[in-house]
Amino acid sequence: ELREAFRLYDKEGNGYISTDVMREILAELDETLSSEDLDAMIDEIDADGSGTVDFEEFMGVMT
């Protein structure tokens, strides 16, 4: 189920989504998050600083 959700956002099928897209997902899930909260969450999610979120990083957030 998580893989299907990931595929919805990984429109190009390249195995990752951008941190911008991940930020939008988080904002949709919790509309009360401030910009600073979102920045901090993205920094934590994208631990390797690649600017992308792969499936493993995505799973870590969603579980």
Rank of each mutant, 00 (worst) to 15 (best):
G51T: 02
M59K: 09
G60L: 15
R23E: 01
E57S: 15
D30M: 12
E44D: 10
T19G: 04
D54L: 10
Y16R: 05
V53L: 11
E28I: 14
L33I: 05
T32N: 12
M22C: 05
T63C: 14
D20N: 10
E36I: 08
A47D: 06
I42E: 00
L33S: 02
S35N: 10
V53S: 01
E4V: 03
E12K: 08
G13W: 03
E28P: 01
S34V: 05
F55L: 09
I42Y: 01
D48K: 09
D10Q: 01
Y16E: 03
I17C: 02
M62P: 03
E1M: 09
G15Y: 03
L29Q: 07
D54E: 07
V21C: 12
R23Q: 01
E36W: 09
L26K: 00
N14I: 10
G51H: 08
E4S: 04
D48W: 06
M22N: 00
D46T: 05
R23V: 02
E44G: 11
E24T: 12
L33Y: 07
E12W: 08
I42G: 00
R3H: 11
T19Y: 07
L26T: 00
G13K: 07
T19D: 02
R7P: 07
D46C: 04
T19K: 07
E31M: 13
D20T: 13
M62E: 02
G60P: 04
I17G: 00
A27G: 08
T19H: 04
A40F: 10
E12L: 08
S34L: 06
D46Q: 04
M59E: 08
A40S: 10
G60C: 14
D43M: 15
T32G: 09
I45K: 01
E4N: 05
R23Y: 04
I25T: 00
T32D: 07
T52M: 12
V53D: 00
E57F: 08
Y16M: 05
I25N: 00
R3C: 15
T32S: 11
E57Y: 09
G60I: 15
T32E: 08
V61D: 00
T32W: 08
M22D: 01
M41W: 15
K11A: 09
